[in-house]
Design a protein around this nucleic acid. Structure first.
Lengths: 116, 116
DNA sequence: AGATAATATATAAACACATTATATAAAGGA
DNA sequence: TCCTTTATATAATGTGTTTATATATTATCT
């Protein structure tokens, strides 16, 4: 385990979809959001994010359009599609199960009947 | 995301260490435990587990010894080392942070001040 | 004026871990 | 006899992350 990003592997795409289900956003802002929410504990590198965005575009989970910030610098905004909305809805249910399972396993809060 | 195992990537080693912090165990039993705790929702393939065990042995997080089941079939038991105990202790604290972060992001339960 | 930091996007090479497939072997049940 | 369960292990392949690097505009500091 070299970097914190390894922990959210498998969740990256859903984190992006979740952010985009709140509002249209762009790469740079999304990395800031993840930094902010994790209190700097988890950081998604730019490379990871942009590759994820490419993957999501390819899978038709998101679309994109260009815009500008107030200073005139160009930004590429991403927008979630109905397919993406469905995917994040389904994943939210799955996450409850995943969270409970990993918590039980990692905390050791389980009873397992062992045969001798 | 092809398989449920992708979700626990990054956590596999700690799941193994957590199980071994309760009792010495062996590969086959550990896959059963993970199946049982996750109610068959998550399954760690044999390959993934045995590679993880090799990695943990190499990192001196665990040691192994041979034993037999009641029918005489041989088993390879694994035991956690002090280094492994320290690692799982530290990870348990980290997991709380990871869990909260992923939950907030995936559920969209966060406020982020956006500059226009 | 020049350097640096912040804003913004993007790709190539290397690395790590998981999946799929496969091999082996002994014991028990249909 | 065949199939299932118990039990361990590896090779080839696949997927996603990290590290490193490139580019460009605007703002701030010295």
């Amino acid at each position: 385990m070299t970097n914190s990003g390894e922990y959210i592997r498998g969740f990256t795409d859903y984190i992006v979809l979740s952010i985009l289900s709140k509002f249209d956003s762009y790469g740079y802002e999304m990395t800031r959001i993840i930094e902010f929410v994790s209190e700097n504990n988890i950081q998604l590198t730019e490379a990871t994010l942009y590759i994820a965005l490419k993957r999501l575009l390819n899978d038709e989970m998101i679309t994109s359009y260009t815009g500008k910030n107030k200073k005139g610098m160009s930004r590429r905004y991403y927008q979630i599609t109905p397919k993406g909305k469905k995917a994040i809805r389904n994943f939210r249910k799955e996450w409850v199960m995943i969270e409970n399972t990993i918590s039980s396993l990692v905390d050791g809060n389980f009873e397992y009947y062992r045969e001798s």
